[in-house]
Design a protein around this nucleic acid. Structure first.
Length: 303
DNA sequence: AAACGTCAAGTTCCG
DNA sequence: CGGAACTTGACGTTT
């Protein structure tokens, strides 16, 4: 049964933002410090808004710490903003919220280029550190993709597995892998999960886009759910609809309620959380919730 | 004050 | 082989 519904990064309903940034050329410790303070304040406002509206699942923007893995950012934010983090941490725990992060397309652990892998490790490191500050328990996840194929998908997948095996356990406990719409389909990611022990976040749109529009089976979803172990929290799914007229794999503004209902019918009889990836963010979540309720559906997600 | 071009990073695919 | 698309706003320079 669907427990929590969530959305990504931006609350369009309110003014608050977690995405203030600057240009690299004028990034100084003082400016970065100011931006981080404002973004953490924004995060607090967004989390409060979420709780007020019964939203207990949320993906934190990677822009919250500008240039976090770049040498220009020498601010020890985990230390300097300890008080803010403590406040946020207490809030998250009190309301049983679940937060996550999703490093961008530049995080490619299986790149054949050492410098790219090194930069990716730095990216993962700061995301892990951020969640460590906010929510020590490992159900709050950092979601990554496997990466490129480089003309030899088997070798590339193996490089990913080796890279993950070299990571410290304190990182691995937070990592989750997601199927993408081009290179690593759900089956590929499940195989990599077996080799690494990382749970799989099933992405509905990526799956349908990469399988020529075929919908997943209950067995496939079940296999993804089974990768979530003790301490990982409930299995998590990403859901979005194809943008009408947009290129394959492009996120639509809204979630199509009928499509979501199909997904719910396919989902195994087990508890899970669902992250909505719609361009209209929280507004899309509200609209979906209303439409499902109008169809007579109820559950903990309804709030 | 508004408009608009630009912004750290990688990879794939399209033209 | 160069450039758009991922995703997407917000910055900062120009008008």
């Amino acid at each position: 049964m669907l427990r929590r519904l969530g959305y990504v990064a931006i609350a369009l309903s309110i003014e608050a933002t977690t995405n203030r940034t600057c240009r690299l050329r004028n990034a100084t410790p003082a400016l970065l410090r100011r931006l981080i303070a404002l973004n953490l304040e924004g995060l607090h406002a967004v989390l409060q808004f979420n709780v007020q509206n019964g939203i207990l699942l949320y993906r934190i923007s990677s822009q919250i710490i500008p240039f976090a893995s770049h040498p220009v950012n020498r601010v020890p934010w985990w230390d300097e903003f300890r008080a803010d983090f403590e406040r946020l941490r207490a809030f998250i725990r009190r309301h049983d919220m679940r937060v996550s992060m999703h490093p961008g397309q530049f995080t490619v652990l299986n790149s054949p280029r050492a410098a790219v892998v090194e930069a990716s490790l730095k990216e993962i490191e700061w995301h892990i550190r951020f969640l460590d500050c906010l929510a020590p328990d490992a159900s709050h996840k950092v979601v990554i993709h496997v990466g490129g194929a480089y003309g030899n998908k088997v070798a590339a997948a193996d490089r990913f597995v080796q890279a993950v095996r070299r990571l410290p356990e304190s990182w691995r406990r937070r990592l989750v892998i997601e199927n993408d719409e081009r290179v690593y389909a759900t089956e590929d990611v499940l195989a990599i999960s077996r080799a690494t022990g990382l749970p799989v976040a099933f992405d509905w749109l990526h799956h349908t886009a990469s399988s020529g529009g075929r919908l997943p089976t209950t067995r496939t979803l079940e296999a993804c759910f089974d990768t979530w172990k003790e301490g990982d929290g409930l299995p998590k799914v990403h859901f979005s609809s194809q943008a009408p007229g947009g290129r394959k794999g492009q996120h639509a503004n809204w979630i199509r309620a009928a499509e979501f209902e199909r997904f719910l019918e396919t989902a195994p009889e087990r508890d899970f959380d669902c992250m909505l990836e719609a361009k209209c963010k929280d507004l899309a979540l509200f609209r979906l919730r209303r439409e499902l309720q109008r169809r007579g559906m109820a559950g903990p997600w309804a709030a």
